[in-house]
Amino acid sequence: MKQTNVETLFGQLDKAVELIQENMNETYLDSLTVAMEVFFYQELSEDTDENLKQKLENILKETDVSSYHTEEIRKAVQLAILKGMKGPTQQQHLMTPDTVALFVGYLAEKVMKNREDIRVFDPAGGTGNLLTTVLGQLKQTESAFASEVDPTLIQLAVLNANLQQKQIEFFHQDSLRPFLLDPVDLIVSDLPVGYYPDDIRANDFELKADEGHSYAHHLFIEQSMNYTKDGGYLIFVIPDFLFDSDQSDKLHAYLQEFAHIVGVLRLPETAFKSEKSIKSILILQKKGENTATPKQPLLVKLPSFKNTQAMNDILAQMNSWFSTYMKE
């Protein structure tokens, strides 16, 4: 069977990573950042071991990254990152699945339809997969921003953006601290789930817990609202239990005051390993002068991504919902 371009590029990247890993005794993900730098700059650092240099130069001779489409590069990098994450990874190192990222991109394109020069921000950027997928679907983006606190993930995200030739400005910081960033038109984010350890910082948020640690996923929603223009949109990948937890009353009240709930889409259970990890997509609009709650919010339970017929039916219904909503 003939290999696809994605498989060929992934194969070359993987080969380079394994050579670097053997030579430098690093983890797969850390070696991947070195390999991506080599592919991007098309050269090796002076102090590279001679034997390794020879082997990597041979891989470079066989690989012309510029001959691949952006989407092929994104997918090949994603396969390498997924391989690196198969080992003992921490929860926050999990990547947004491709189908989910594409769906967020589809929704972003719908709500941004009538806008030009869009500014987009992902406050939990991770490896950049969600943001670069969305940017691939939004043609009228003027500038994009992402924040990530984890050093390995942000390195991967920067190189991922470079290889795909996507202009993204990255903040390497705790995303719940203040940003030097003007408000944006659109926020997309796969919310980190769990407790936020910095109680002093959490005190500045309305959604802080009354006692004990606050939920990071709640604080991320509030932080995102702070950096969204009035009338701007926020599309979050959320844990299925977001509105059923012990602090959800506060979240409900906050959203009622500052946002319109545009829709909730429950992702198919088949896309997740266990019932605990099922997620939904929440679409919000920040309240502004001429905004209103949709007459009928978009509430959808998505069928399995593999069921093409059911998926096409639901997309047709959603397209018609959006064309009515955007006229309201």
Rank of each mutant, 00 (worst) to 15 (best):
A316Y: 08
E22G: 09
V134F: 03
E46S: 14
P88A: 14
N307F: 07
L315C: 06
V65W: 07
D190Y: 03
A124I: 05
L180H: 09
E148Y: 10
Y28K: 04
P178Q: 12
D249T: 13
Q223L: 05
A101H: 02
V100R: 02
D47H: 14
L19F: 15
Y68Q: 09
T63W: 12
A101S: 15
S280W: 03
T27R: 04
V38G: 02
T48L: 10
S320P: 00
N290W: 08
M326A: 09
L302R: 02
I235M: 08
A144P: 01
Q155E: 12
E71V: 15
V262W: 03
D14Q: 15
Y41V: 12
E142Q: 04
A209L: 10
Y68C: 11
E222Y: 02
S147K: 01
K113T: 01
Q167T: 13
E222C: 04
S45I: 14
G288C: 06
P97Y: 01
T141K: 01
D204E: 12
K273R: 14
E222T: 05
T127N: 13
L251S: 02
A16H: 06
I281N: 01
T141P: 00
F241A: 12
D204P: 01
Q90M: 14
V264N: 06
E211T: 13
S245N: 13
V104R: 01
Q223M: 06
K86C: 11
T141C: 04
L159V: 06
L19W: 05
E148Q: 03
V188P: 00
G125M: 07
A253K: 15
L255W: 00
A253P: 10
G136M: 13
M225W: 04
T99G: 08
T96F: 07
A80T: 10
L159Q: 14
P192H: 09
G288F: 14
N58W: 14
H217D: 02
A35L: 11
L265M: 13
A124N: 02
Q173R: 04
T152Q: 05
T63Q: 06
F170W: 11
Y215D: 01
E116N: 07
F272H: 05
L60I: 11
Y195M: 10
Q167M: 09
T293G: 03
T152W: 14
L138G: 00
L135H: 04
L242F: 03
A16F: 09
N226R: 15
D185H: 05
F170Q: 02
E109T: 03
V300Q: 11
F121T: 00
L207K: 02
E26I: 11
F103R: 04
T48Y: 11
D190N: 15
L131H: 05
D198L: 12
L255C: 09
Y106P: 00
V237T: 07
V193H: 07
Y68D: 03
L94Q: 14
E46I: 15
A157Y: 01
I154T: 04
E289G: 09
Q21W: 13
L219M: 05
F179V: 05
M36P: 00
A80L: 10
L234K: 03
D199G: 06
D64H: 14
K229P: 04
L102F: 07
K327E: 11
P123V: 08
L255Y: 01
M225S: 02
Y41Q: 14
L251C: 08
D240I: 08
L19V: 06
A76P: 03
D313E: 13
L19Y: 07
L19C: 04
Q167P: 09
T270M: 13
A271I: 08
R74Q: 15
P123E: 08
M95E: 12
F258R: 10
N290F: 08
